[in-house]
Computed example of a mutant assay.
Amino acid sequence: MKRAFKTEIKLTNEQQQKLHQTFGICRFLYNHFLAYNKDHYEQFKQGKQPHGFISGMDFDKYINKDLSKQEGYEWIKVVSSKARKKAIMNAHTSFQRFFKGQSKFPRFKKKSHQDVKAYFPKNNTTDWTIERHRVKIPTIGWVRLKEFGYLPTNQRIISGTVSQKADRYFVSVLCEVEEQTNKKV
């Protein structure tokens, strides 16, 4: 059974800068995907395109092969590729929900409303290592926990997300936990 745990973390200035850079690039890619597909959708309505939008996988290929190699866009490759891809796939999901009629047309993310989260999967065995008072986040490094005991130290971690709300930073980890059976005697 999967279970998520969330707690507040304390970052150093360098870690905050790296995280803000990740948030900014993820927000840029999300918005760029929406703008690209909005234009694509307008052409689709006029009959110039066969499909309503391009997939997140195709857009990720476009980012890696074309856009990041253009002059002035080299900074896209600075952060984790998984965090970038997750932002694109989140935008892809919002477009799919729009075309299925489950939600309205996706909105752009604003810098003033910090609603972008950075996703970090567990690629190596040393990623997402949790100790009593700190956690190791991929590409960020060891980060101190503000409150001890909220994150499990003995569970298998699948992935995690770092978010910011009102100048406070939070880490949320997804763990594989054993199901506990309650037996009544």
Rank of each mutant, 00 (worst) to 15 (best):
E74P: 00
S112P: 00
D167Y: 11
K6S: 05
E178M: 03
T93A: 14
H40N: 14
K136L: 06
R97P: 00
P106C: 08
Q164M: 09
A35M: 08
A166H: 11
M89T: 10
A118E: 04
K82Y: 08
T181Y: 07
K77Q: 13
P121L: 10
S112Y: 11
N154V: 12
T7S: 01
I9Q: 05
R156E: 14
S80H: 13
K77F: 03
S172C: 12
T181F: 08
G101Y: 06
T7Q: 01
G101Q: 11
Y169F: 15
Q155L: 12
A166C: 09
K48T: 08
W75S: 07
S94T: 14
D115P: 00
L174Q: 09
N31Q: 10
G141C: 08
Q70R: 15
K6T: 05
F105H: 05
N64K: 14
I76C: 06
S103K: 15
E74L: 04
N64H: 05
Q43C: 10
E42F: 10
S80Q: 15
V79D: 08
Y30Q: 05
S68Q: 09
L34T: 13
M57S: 12
S163Q: 01
A83Q: 09
K18S: 14
A166L: 08
K184Y: 14
F23N: 03
N31Y: 05
N123M: 09
K48A: 11
K165F: 10
T93F: 07
V143H: 04
R134V: 01
V162F: 05
P50D: 14
I9S: 03
E131F: 01
F95M: 14
R27F: 04
L34V: 14
F53P: 00
K2M: 11
W142P: 04
N154R: 13
R3Y: 04
Q164K: 13
E71W: 08
R84P: 00
L29N: 04
C175P: 01
L67T: 12
K18N: 08
Y62K: 15
Q114W: 07
R144D: 08
D58P: 00
I88Y: 09
Q70W: 04
A87I: 07
P121W: 08
K65W: 00
T153E: 08
R156M: 12
K2S: 06
Q96L: 13
G56P: 04
S159Y: 02
S103V: 05
Q49T: 10
F28I: 03
Q49E: 15
I137W: 02
F108V: 00
Q114E: 15
Y41R: 07
N37P: 10
F105P: 00
K6Q: 03
N182T: 12
S68L: 01
I25G: 02
W128N: 02
I54E: 09
K136E: 02
C26P: 07
K10Y: 13
P106S: 10
D115E: 14
Y30I: 01
H51W: 08
K77M: 06
Y30N: 03
Q155S: 13
N64I: 01
E74V: 06
P50G: 06
V78K: 14
Q155Y: 13
K122C: 03
I88F: 07
S81Y: 12
T12E: 06
G141F: 05
H133G: 03
P152T: 00
F23D: 04
F59P: 03
N123P: 00
I88N: 07
W128G: 01
N124A: 15
E74N: 10
T125F: 11
Q21P: 00
F170G: 02
I25R: 02
K86Q: 15
R134Y: 02
